[in-house]
Design a protein around this nucleic acid. Structure first.
Length: 501
RNA sequence: GGUUCACUAGCUCAGUUGGCAGAGCACCUGACUUUUAAUCAGGGUGUCCCGGGUUCAAAUCCCGGGUGAGCCA
């Protein structure tokens, strides 16, 4: 592309640091050096050189000429010879520029380099007197001139706002951030691997739809212009995946972004990644096994151990406790809510132990409130809570012995919900009734209650085989396995308010 | 939504009672051919988040707003 000065943006308020770098850019151009280069063939990553030449000693140097590329992270000038550090995705290696080797012209070019510039280097590997494996630069190419100064080398970048808004700077400066996101990718790979090897089919279902179903949450609303139609961003993948099981896919899963129009805090981002898994002819017990398997494989894949520290507490993923919600509440408070015959009894029980509830809650809702108030945050080690009230589980199949509860589980770690699963409700008549109850709850002011999905009922009427389903919060799993305190630390670009103009 | 805290140079941070805006790194000039937070000599580069107010005088005090972090709902 030709230079086009008319297209050059007008630079206002340019401070000296920026000006100096643009002057150097111009100096390169005057010398006939393109400051933004092209293809560069790399023979080694930095880590590979450090490994391959680990035994290089004394005056020896590599027979081969290596070529590497990366960003300059330090420059230590010494007049007619200089040390520098170049970083690629595998790490850093020292490089050595020497006037005798490079010649006047090239060394003058070196002097115009800044920390942050991206260069390609050709050279031989040797060890310095101080013992550091180093590439002596025989020649180098400027691949991209950096026009902005990087944060300080010692303290780096700590400002959370800049870290989240300009993640690229965070990634350059903080190697542990890179590690976290590599771990995230490996966790997702591990999940895929677990499911693919068990004959599950990965699918993709729509993000846009006219009914936001499958979870209790407020959706985002958007608009389709041609259809002149308001649409929702999905809040779960559940209902479409079950439609696919009706269609005969038997074992399906989807790893995908879902969107919930709710508050933001250390554990919640408006968009996040869920995985939902459905297995025909299985029940919730099978899916608890799947949950354990997925979490264990992921822990082994990225931590190499089933004992993983999270925020100072060791979480042991080798055994998952299983206990019913009612038993867990009974253990914690001595109250047996399922022994209640009437709502009044349950309310009295809740009052005794100081558990707040809303007027519309039935016995099940009150039991759940007691669980959330008294038990949830105490579940530090991996625990499956089972037997959730039917009242709060509109998509789960009733327990055959006690229709007030469902064959459902939630997995808790460090007091937080990590996974949720159940034997799917496949009785269309029961399902329709549950949706009606949800509509009533919505009328009573619960704006997170499920929407009616007529076509989903129709699908069930064609016949959903007995099916176990499971959803896991991928971001939370990544948080646990990377010891990240905030969900924003495991999202490359967390949702941020725009800066005021 | 409520509440507390933060916002000062490119970055990390000081800034006294309200009295000329500071340091380290980075950067610029010079020296230096095996350094590594290189070193030595010299140089301060700023919308003190924004807008009002009080005051002879505001980074500092008051009011409003913005963004972020934490706690609560």
């Amino acid at each position: 592309m030709a230079e086009n000065k008319e297209n050059a943006p007008v630079q206002q308020d340019m401070n000296e640091l920026l000006k100096v770098r643009r002057d150097k850019l111009a100096a390169f151009r005057e010398m006939g050096v393109a400051p933004f280069g092209h293809r560069f063939e790399v023979s080694h990553h930095n880590a590979a050189i450090l490994e391959q030449y680990a035994n290089l000693e004394g005056e020896d140097e590599s027979a081969e000429e290596v070529t590497i590329a990366g960003r300059l992270m330090a420059i230590r000038g010494h007049g007619k010879a200089s040390f520098s550090v170049i970083m690629d995705r595998t790490g850093r290696i020292q490089i050595y520029f020497k006037l005798d080797v490079l010649g006047e012209e090239k060394y003058k070019q070196f002097k115009l380099l800044d920390i942050g510039d991206i260069i390609g280097v050709k050279g031989h590997v040797f060890r310095t007197r101080r013992g550091e494996l180093t590439v002596r630069v025989d020649d180098f190419d400027l691949l991209s001139k950096s026009l902005r100064p990087l944060p300080e080398k010692f303290h780096g970048l700590t400002d959370t706002e800049i870290r989240y808004r300009q993640r690229y700077v965070d990634l350059i400066m903080n190697p542990e951030v890179m590690n976290t996101f590599v771990a995230r990718t490996n966790i997702i790979k591990s999940i895929r691997n677990y499911l693919d090897s068990r004959d599950f089919l990965e699918v993709e279902t729509p993000v846009l739809g006219t009914i936001a179903g499958g979870a209790a949450a407020r959706p985002f609303i958007t608009h389709h212009n041609t259809l002149d139609l308001d649409m929702y961003l999905r809040i779960a993948t559940e209902l479409n995946l079950k439609r696919l099981v009706v269609g005969g896919m038997e074992r399906v899963y989807e790893i995908g972004r879902v969107f919930r129009n709710e508050g933001m805090d250390v554990r919640h981002n408006p968009e996040f990644t869920s995985i939902e898994i459905y297995q025909a002819y299985a029940d919730y017990n099978d899916l608890m096994d799947v949950t354990e398997g997925i979490v264990r494989d992921a822990a082994m894949a990225v931590c190499g151990s089933l004992q993983v520290d999270y925020q100072g507490t060791t979480i042991d993923y080798s055994s998952f406790k299983r206990i019913s919600m009612n038993d867990a509440v009974k253990e914690a408070t001595g109250k047996d809510f399922l022994s209640c015959e009437t709502v009044e009894e349950a309310r009295a029980m809740a009052d005794e132990i100081g558990v707040p509830y809303e007027k519309r809650f039935g016995i099940g809702g009150i039991l759940n409130a007691a669980f959330e108030e008294k038990v949830e945050e105490t579940l530090i080690q991996p625990t499956f809570i089972t037997g959730h009230p039917t009242e709060i589980s509109p998509l789960a199949k009733r327990n055959p012995e006690d229709p007030r509860i469902t064959d459902r589980f939630e997995c808790f770690v460090y007091g937080r919900e990590l996974a949720n699963g159940f034997t799917e409700l496949n009785d269309p008549i029961d399902q329709e009734g549950r949706f009606m109850d949800q509509l009533k709850a919505r009328e009573d002011g619960d704006d997170e209650a499920h929407m009616m999905d007529r076509d989903f009922i129709t699908a069930l009427e064609y016949g959903l085989p007995p099916t176990g389903g499971l959803g896991i919060g991928v971001d939370r799993l990544v948080m646990f396995l990377t010891d990240s305190a905030s969900i924003r630390d495991v999202l490359l670009f967390p949702t941020m308010k725009p800066l005021a103009e």
